[in-house]
């Protein structure tokens, strides 16, 4: 039980997927201009990542095994793309409101490197099924948290008096760097 909690805390804060592992930077920079969009993207990613890391574990363990391990990456991509499509169809039917909120971000997740990175990291760290699920969920929660924080900061930056050469993308990059350094402070939390 304690080890599960440790995985969660470690993936959310210490090994944050965006700020420490530097994965999933495209949505981090791209979808962080508005707070609402960031929340939608975070929710969609959390759902897909949790499901994706669970099913990728099952595939690599029971379908591929050690003989076919060279198929890992391509089969993960196929499975994740399938899950994303399936999720989109189901959400469209079950909850049109949620579908409207998530909008374009749902299919965008297919090309999110964090979503492929976490199942591959799971494999590397030899996690079991529950650990994989938790690792996926923790990574996604960490991603959403950072995305929402960053979106909040960027909304304020819009109104701030930023020097001309730093406007727009540059100040966003500087902010991301500072946030990354702040997250380094968590590194002593879990050994």
């Amino acid at each position: 039980m304690e080890s599960y909690l440790l995985i969660l805390v470690s993936t959310v804060f210490v090994n944050n997927i965006v700020l420490v592992k530097i994965l999933g930077l495209c949505p981090f920079m791209g979808v962080s201009k508005k707070l609402e969009a960031a929340v939608g993207m975070g929710a969609a990613t959390t759902f897909v990542l949790t499901l994706g890391s669970g099913s990728s574990y099952l595939i690599s363990k029971y379908l591929l095994g050690p003989d076919l391990s060279y198929l890992t990456t391509i089969s993960f991509i196929v499975v994740i793309a399938g899950i994303v499509q399936f999720t989109e169809i189901v959400v469209k039917k079950v909850s049109p409101v949620l579908y409207q909120v998530l909008g374009i971000y749902l299919p965008l997740i297919t090309t999110n490197c964090a979503v492929l990175g976490i199942p591959l990291l799971n494999l590397q760290e030899k996690h079991d099924f529950v650990q994989s699920l938790l690792f996926g969920m923790g990574g996604a929660v960490g991603f959403s948290m950072v995305l929402i924080l960053f979106a909040g900061i960027r909304e304020r930056l819009e109104a701030a008096d930023v020097p001309e050469p730093f406007r727009g993308g540059s100040i966003a990059m500087v902010t991301a760097g500072l946030m990354s350094m702040a997250f380094m402070g968590f590194s002593g939390l879990v050994k």
Partner: peptide, 23 residues
Amino acid sequence: LVMSGLALFLGSLLGYASIRFHV
């Protein structure tokens, strides 16, 4: 075989879903 099986499974799952959950 594994890759085609996987693709077949996901394809039929999506096909089924798009009919079952047709809006």
